[in-house]
Amino acid sequence: MALATRGTDQRPSMTRTLWGSTIGKKTVMAVSGLIMLGYLVAHMLGNLKIFFGAPEFNGYAHWLRTLGEPVLHYEWALWILRVALVVAVVLHAVCAYQLSRRDRAARPVGYAHKRARATYATRTMRWGGIILALFIVWHILDLTTGTAHPGGFQPGHPYQNVVDTFSTWYGNVIYIVAMLALGLHILHGFWSAAQTLGVGSAARERALKASAGVLAFALTAGFISIPVAVMTGVVS
């Protein structure tokens, strides 16, 4: 009898219940997406320092590596940020994949009549995510490790490394395509996250839709302005 009682008392933990449910996975996607969005805003603002010249941009890059000193050692804060972002990206991607599988399993037979059921941004979320995942790998190999960097990678000279990358046609193409995919991803993802977490009134819904558009445009334009500036000689 005691054994039976212990068996019936075994219940899944709250974490497993949350992770196993559709709403739980959507919540994880929303929170991880907002974490990445916050990073993107900060990253774009930092990147725009390139318009103030090499000393300003290189100084900013050095400051990132000394952030938290003397409490933290050199680059510790940067590595903590990198690990947190990797966790957010992995959780976001895994939840997106699993939710896609569930959606297909719940609808094994295709629609009899093909028609547009969502915006262009919504329909391209999956491919946009794949493009961004591949871009992240290339971006790290190019400007962090220098493995895929054109010419000679110069540690400690991020300004020149950025100029070198965007002095090549393929560097510009890869970056601009990825940033356009990012804009579409944010356009739908920000609104989707707000819906998952609860937007409240109709007025807030309209405001969030407008905010999603403004944010997607601002980030896309801000990131793309850098390769354009290198191509046109504004940054050299």
Rank of each mutant, 00 (worst) to 15 (best):
M1D: 14
A2S: 13
A2W: 12
L3F: 08
R6T: 02
P12F: 15
M14H: 03
T17G: 11
W19V: 12
G20Y: 08
S21F: 12
S21T: 13
G24C: 11
G24K: 10
K25H: 04
K26Y: 08
A30T: 14
S32Q: 07
G33Y: 00
L37I: 00
G38R: 03
L40M: 06
L40I: 04
V41G: 01
V41R: 03
N47E: 08
F51V: 14
F57Q: 08
Y60K: 00
H62V: 14
L64G: 14
T66P: 11
L72K: 03
H73W: 12
H73N: 13
Y74S: 07
Y74G: 05
W79G: 08
I80P: 05
R82Q: 10
V83H: 06
H92E: 00
H92N: 01
A93H: 04
V94T: 04
V94N: 01
C95S: 15
A96I: 01
Y97I: 13
L99K: 03
L99I: 09
R101M: 00
H113G: 07
R115N: 10
R126M: 06
W127E: 01
G128C: 02
I131E: 04
A133P: 13
F135E: 14
F135N: 11
F135W: 09
I140R: 13
I140G: 11
D142Q: 07
D142A: 14
L143P: 07
T144E: 15
H149I: 00
P150G: 12
G152Y: 11
G152E: 13
F153D: 00
Q154D: 12
P155M: 10
P155S: 08
G156Q: 07
P158I: 05
Y159E: 09
Q160Y: 06
V162G: 04
D164K: 07
T165C: 13
S167V: 00
T168G: 05
W169P: 15
Y170H: 13
G171H: 13
G171E: 08
G171D: 06
V173F: 08
Y175V: 02
Y175R: 05
A178H: 02
L180Q: 06
L182G: 08
L184W: 09
I186Q: 02
L187V: 05
L187G: 08
L187N: 11
H188F: 10
G189W: 02
G189H: 04
F190S: 11
A193V: 09
A194R: 13
Q195Y: 00
A202C: 01
A202F: 05
A202I: 10
A203M: 01
E205N: 10
E205I: 03
L208W: 12
L208S: 12
K209W: 05
K209S: 08
G213D: 09
A216R: 08
L219V: 01
T220E: 00
F223P: 12
I226F: 12
G233W: 03
S236F: 07
